[in-house]
Amino acid sequence: MKPIRIESLLARALNVGTWLTSIVIAAGLMLSLFHQRTPFPTAVHILTAGIGIFILLPILRVILMLIFFAKERDYKFTAAAAVVLLTIFAGLAIGILAK
């Protein structure tokens, strides 16, 4: 059996992710366009969710790489992926603290 190449795995994940997120944001925009008269917090919530998923997408990509390198027993690169993840989480922590 041919092993799955990391490149095609990432390509598929990013493609699907971008489409899903774009659809969520488009839905939020549509709602806010058609319900402009009434206060419509749902539209803002959907938009915010879409933006949140967009930010999660690269994080998911790093997690996929981490799992892949760990499975390959490529420990240097597993460590590199872990450092990147921790740095991103540190940013989130700073953001929450600074709020």
Partner: peptide, 15 residues
């Protein structure tokens, strides 16, 4: 995307 996510995540949770 990953570079941007590091700052975007912080800006997002900070509001």
């Amino acid at each position: 995307s990953v570079t941007a996510a590091a700052s975007a995540g912080a800006y997002f949770v900070r509001g």
